[in-house]
Design a binder for these strands. Structure first.
Length: 506
RNA sequence: GCCGUCUUAGCUCAGUUGGUUAGAGCGCUAGAUUGUGGAUCUAGAGGUCCCCUGUUCGAUUCAGGGAGACGGUACCA
């Protein structure tokens, strides 16, 4: 077949795992970020912004993943051959910043930061290769008071966003307790082999909610084969060890003190274990004093968190309600998490700098709020559109736009090249409340015509005959040119509460 | 990473047992109406039939490889 000669055209498409975000979502998301920021500010945190990419060695790798050591991060080489990487979270850049500016910072240093991060992974539903996090961290704070505060602040954030008490819970655990249990269970050792086993155990526990105790049991033992035939290598523990770990993960309950008691029992003689339990008791005392009950902050031994660098308390913000989405009923699960990382800055400084932090997964939380109906998306009134009836009258039209803008009314001149019908259609599509019409007839009479598109749209459901509909010119009003502003304001006031527009200009 | 399904217009999808010019609905642009949103009628734009290689006189169709999308699983600092 003879093909037509074609000029090459690139395919317009978004890269895998990336997406565009439309106007109403951007607005709603920014409102959400503002509310979170207000809570962080209230707690005394200061804003910080760092760049999107860093020297690769400064970001470091905190995940000893034997299989794929270099995956997950987007990297490229500078013209001096040094490797740069896009940040994959906001904590690693913070560690670099603190190390670089250590002496000048008031310590404890408390900062918050939001922005996109990038991970080079297979995208999935609700999982992208670029996503936004909103972090707060306290650096050089050795006591668990800092951790307790993180948990309370996270709870406050969720409530500030309109999530009712009872629909979320902060689940808290301590890595030290976990280590203690492993110690008494006899899962001990040193070197990379032990690291891998340790990691496997953590990952297994992390899957408890999805696979249940039996699945976790298999992962702790020989291994597990899933329905698609994929086999996951296990940790090869003995039955008695597995029993002890499973018992530990199951000892969660409502009363925080009772959880601590159960943990103390399972930790036995282990020193780190005892230390971990003591820390949890201290956290309990702090949050109890502030009246955060277990329905808001609970102790749960099944919380593990991805591991990388955590050394003490770890926490996870979980949404517990179910919601109808396109895919049916879903639980949103974890929308954020964090914990204590005492040796992250040590990489740079050579001295231990204790720190703790919390990170909110913005997109995930956003979809949850959307499902809850907590986002009022269309608060912004679309612009008034001034139509171009006669091209030689542009300065006059532009002046009308200027006058409207001076009054704080969103307005724009029609900047396209099409006829009147297309212009009204455009305004309609933009959700514009009003179009301003000044053709020859109006000009002669010293008037402008205002067309109320919202009212017109309501009337249009009763249209029978097109010609008649046009002649009747529904929802239109001619006002003297000098009263353009007043006319527009009155018309807007039919549909909107205009107090905030006026207030801005007083 | 592994397993499975899929990929034709902006969207949802037909279709070609391998054959000239690949279709529909919706959407889009414009006209009917100097100058009015819906409906109607008319016209128009828009396609490397995912990419590469092979088989063939001829491939959107068949074969091999690749990419991408979706679902499951693994990973998730």
């Amino acid at each position: 077949m003879a093909k037509k000669k074609k000029t090459f055209r690139p395919k317009a498409r978004t890269p895998k795992g990336l997406r565009d975000i439309g106007a109403s979502t951007v607005r709603a998301e920014q409102m959400m970020l503002a509310r979170i920021r207000d809570v962080y500010e209230l707690y005394g945190f200061e804003p910080l912004e760092t760049s999107a990419f860093e020297y690769a060695d400064a970001l470091g790798k905190f995940l000893p993943d034997a299989d794929r050591p270099n995956e997950g991060v987007f990297s490229f080489q500078d013209d001096d051959d040094q490797w740069l990487s896009l940040r994959y979270d906001l904590t690693a850049p913070l560690a670099r910043f603190v190390a670089e500016n250590y002496d000048g910072l008031a310590k404890p240093y408390r900062r918050y930061q939001t922005g996109p991060v990038w991970r080079n992974e297979k995208p999935g539903p609700g999982r992208y290769r670029q996503f936004t996090q909103f972090d707060a961290d306290t650096i050089a704070a050795p006591t668990v008071a800092a951790d307790a505060e993180m948990c309370m602040m996270a709870a406050d954030c969720l409530e500030a966003l309109g999530i009712p008490r009872g629909d979320y819970v902060m689940r808290v655990n301590n890595r030290k307790v976990l280590d203690g249990v492993l110690e008494t269970a006899g899962v001990v050792g040193e070197g990379p082999e032990f690291e891998v086993q340790h990691l496997t155990v953590m990952r297994a526990i992390d899957k408890l909610d999805r696979l249940g105790p039996d699945g976790v049991r298999r992962l702790l033992g020989k291994g597990r084969k899933d329905e698609s035939g994929d086999y996951t290598e296990g940790a090869h523990l003995e039955e008695a060890q597995i029993d002890r770990i499973i018992a530990f993960t199951q000892c969660g309950q409502t009363d925080r003190i009772a959880v601590c008691d159960a943990m103390a029992e399972l930790v036995g003689e282990s020193e780190v274990g005892a230390e971990g339990v003591a820390e949890l008791r201290e956290i309990d005392a702090l949050i109890t004093a502030c009246a955060y009950g277990p329905e808001r902050i609970a102790f749960d031994p099944a919380v593990v968190r991805g591991l990388g660098y955590y050394t003490g308390p770890v926490f996870e913000a979980e949404l517990t309600f179910e919601a109808e989405t396109d895919e049916g009923v879903t639980r949103f699960g974890s929308v954020g998490g964090g914990g204590r990382y005492d040796n992250l800055i040590e990489r740079f400084k050579g001295v231990k700098v204790p720190a703790t932090g919390f990170s909110i997964g913005v997109s995930r939380l956003y979809s949850a709020l959307e499902a809850l109906g907590k986002l009022n998306q269309d608060e912004v009134i679309a612009p008034v559109v001034v139509l171009v009836m006669d091209k030689d009258q542009l300065p006059g039209y532009q002046l009308m736009v200027r006058e409207l803008r001076n009054e704080g009314i969103r307005a724009e001149l029609y900047l396209g090249g099409s006829g009147m019908k297309a212009q009204v259609k455009y305004a309609d599509k933009r959700n514009s409340p009003i179009v301003v019409i000044e053709g020859g007839n109006e000009r002669e009479a010293g008037e402008v015509t205002l067309k109320d598109l919202i009212l017109g749209s309501q009337l249009s459901s009763q249209i029978e005959d097109n010609a008649e509909w046009r002649e009747s010119q529904p929802a239109q009003l001619a006002v003297p040119r000098a009263e353009l502003i007043k006319g527009v304001k009155d018309m807007l006031a039919r549909h909107f509460d205009m107090s905030h527009v006026d207030a801005r200009h007083r």
